[in-house]
């Protein structure tokens, strides 16, 4: 009796130890994942001379927001932000509408050679022509150095079509049929019935494509040479590589007159790089936790079907 009790106690002990270690390990992992973002944010709002010698680690010191006002004054940054916002909004809208419509049409069994055309779209997931042929194609189509190179080539996303089609197939058919009997055409059914009822999956598609658009960087690198079409991501990349010349530029702009006080808010390469990084990452930081459920739903359906 006594030994049994002791054994039980030891087990309990083991359990507690395991729980403690487990929690501890996950706290460490979480810190490793999140701390870099925190580090960048506190450094952009702290005195720049302190942050330049690496003494801002846990809490911001002598908080100021000059970095943001000055960086936003950099030539071309506002423009790049507009380009990024524009491509995210327009690109997402186009992709969502196209995926929704195609997903819906492919549930219509009466469509002419439905199977063939469905495969025509889906199979494009599994091959690609490669970088240079894509570049040549964009050139032939006169899309290089236009805003539309960010939008038109990515409208069709086979994976999204699969997601929407799977979702619509799982919905009850009766509403659609009722509307069709009432004489509604496909566009009416699509707009009045499919779009509202498929909202959850469309939100998933939207959020995936918005993050993709916001983060996209390669297309600017390859198809765009004109500075006024640079996206925020691309601008950030160039800033990382030439932040020192940039800091000089901001200083010469005379945004902050050189004085004893100004040292704390004077731009350094580090401060510019970090400030732009924070500007680029903030939308993701805010959007992602709110829409996490949609992302998860997306990969769930995708993993079942894909």
């Amino acid at each position: 009796m006594k030994t049994r009790k002791m054994r039980h106690k030891r087990l309990k002990c083991n359990d507690v130890a395991f729980n403690l270690i487990n929690h501890f390990v996950f706290i460490i992992i979480t810190l490793i994942c999140f701390y870099p973002f925190y580090y960048m944010i506190i450094n952009t709002v702290s005195a720049n001379d302190l942050s330049a010698n690496g003494s801002i680690r846990f809490l911001p010191k002598s908080i100021h927001f000059d970095n943001y006002t000055q960086v936003l004054a950099i030539n071309g940054l506002m423009r790049a932000a507009l380009i990024s916002i524009g491509r995210t909004v327009i690109g997402t809208a186009c992709t969502v509408l196209a995926s929704a419509f195609l997903g819906y049409v492919f549930t219509q069994e009466k469509m002419w050679h439905r199977r063939f055309w469905y495969r025509f779209f889906i199979i494009t997931m599994y091959f690609n022509a490669g970088l240079i042929p894509m570049f040549i194609t964009m050139k032939t189509l006169h899309l290089t150095n236009t805003f539309w190179v960010y939008i038109i080539p990515v409208i069709i996303q086979p994976f999204n079509i699969i997601l929407v089609k799977t979702y619509i197939e799982s919905m009850p058919r009766s509403l659609q049929e009722a509307a069709e009997i009432d004489g509604a055409g496909i566009f009416t059914v699509f707009g009045k019935i499919i779009l509202p009822t498929a909202k959850p999956i469309l939100a998933t598609v939207a959020i995936f494509s918005a993050v993709g658009q916001w983060n996209s960087f390669q297309d600017t690198l390859i198809y765009v040479t004109e500075q006024k079409l640079y996206s925020l991501q691309y601008l950030l990349y160039t800033y990382i590589n030439q932040a020192s010349s940039l800091a000089a530029m901001v200083r010469n702009n005379g945004v902050s007159a050189v004085s004893a006080v100004a040292l704390a808010s004077q731009q350094t390469p580090t401060s510019i790089r970090m400030t732009v990084s924070v500007i680029v990452v903030l939308p993701i930081l805010f959007v992602y936790p709110m829409f996490q459920q949609f992302f998860v739903k997306g990969i769930m359906i995708g993993s079942v079907k894909g």
């Binding site: 979480t30 994942c33 916001w214 983060n215 960087f217 950030l236 930081l285 996490q292 992302f295």
Partner: peptide, 13 residues
């Protein structure tokens, strides 16, 4: 939530 966050930033970031 916090550990999945890095997945959603670009490689530039």
């Amino acid at each position: 939530t916090l550990t999945a966050l890095p997945n959603f930033i670009s490689w530039v970031l």
